[in-house]
């Protein structure tokens, strides 16, 4: 256990935001879900008792007849905003006084940094380079993340949970986002920052970053494992495997949606275009963890080998 190495990584100024993320993301996940569960309990209560549902103000926040439903922005909101601005300024100043922004040696194209890392918020994409070729990890997937986020409001046909925290009424949506945001985006950033060392090799926390470390990973392509040697065979085989994955993922996603009656109800509301878009995005998103397992556990580099592109 090399505590000094661990401290060096954690205390690197540009890594401080990731250390911050490790606390902030779990906190706000808990903070949001706690309110979701509170609302869910209220919803269950109201569904059991239709009379109460008619008269209840339908919030977990306190309410009494005679209370105004709205308050003046001045002073009730503005004072909070002013206070937030002051607190934020103080935090930023204290942080800036105690910790200096990093400045390395002057740029030197002849001296490669090892490891040379992108800024922390792109480390998820850089980590993706291990599992996919640059055209996928650096161009296609980032574009798909952006497009995928943009289409969310247009494919989510569930009218419930608009303007309040809830888990039970939006299980599929919540799980999808938690998976994409926390299990993929944030944890890949954490891996890229804290785990990946020289040569972008995997160093568990506490391991010394040995610049002379050599690993003898034999990366294989899936067709080679099956003994397929000729080019056309590889193209066909890879295509078939990718096709099988797509169908399997499609069925998996579909099963996850129609697990309960409510999911079926929402599915019935969706147009074919909405359904196809959602399936496309989710199949592509799921391909990342699948490829991660193939690579990290089975040391398989490519599944589909062609002269023009490899996946």
């Amino acid at each position: 256990m090399d505590l000094h190495q661990l401290w060096t990584i954690l205390s690197t100024p540009d890594n401080v935001p990731i250390v911050l993320l490790l606390f902030v993301i779990p906190f706000y996940t808990w903070y949001g879900l706690r309110q979701s569960f509170a609302n869910d309990r209220l919803i269950a209560q109201l569904e059991k008792d239709p009379v109460m549902a008619k008269t209840h103000h339908r919030k977990t926040q306190p309410w009494r007849p005679g209370w105004a439903r709205e308050v003046h922005v001045w002073p009730y909101l503005l004072r909070i905003e002013f206070l937030a601005a002051i607190i934020l300024t103080v935090i930023l100043m204290v942080w800036s006084i105690t910790l200096n922004a990093p400045l390395e040696e002057p740029a030197n194209p002849t001296l490669t940094m090892n490891p040379s890392k992108a800024p922390w918020y792109f480390l998820g994409l850089q980590e993706m380079l291990v599992y996919f070729d640059p055209w996928m990890a650096g161009v296609v997937f980032p574009s798909l993340i952006i497009v995928g986020l943009m289409v969310i409001p247009y494919i989510d046909e569930n009218p419930l949970g608009n303007g309040y925290y809830t888990y039970k009424q939006r299980k599929f949506a919540i799980w999808t986002f938690l998976f994409g945001f926390i299990a993929l985006w944030v944890s890949m950033i954490v891996i890229g920052t804290l785990i990946r060392g020289p040569g972008w090799m995997w160093f568990w926390p506490g391991m010394t970053w040995d610049h002379n470390r050599l690993t003898f990973d034999v990366n294989r392509d899936l067709p080679d494992i099956f003994g397929i040697k000729n080019r056309i065979g590889k193209i066909l085989f890879g295509g078939i495997v990718v096709g099988i994955y797509c169908v399997a993922a499609w069925i998996g996603v579909h099963m996850a949606i129609v697990r309960d009656a409510f999911g079926k109800k929402i599915l019935a509301r969706m147009s074919l275009l909405q359904y196809a878009t959602m399936q496309l995005m989710l199949i592509l998103m799921l391909s990342l963890p699948v490829k991660m397992i193939l690579r990290l556990v089975f040391r398989i580099k490519y599944v589909w080998v062609t002269p023009w592109f490899n996946i």
Binding site: P106, L111, S116, W135
Partner: peptide
């Protein structure tokens, strides 16, 4: 500096694979 130079080198190298 080295930090920015290599970060941008890594970042823009992805663009060559568009």
């Amino acid at each position: 500096d080295q930090l920015g130079f290599w970060a941008v080198t890594v970042g823009t190298n992805m663009a060559r694979a568009t």
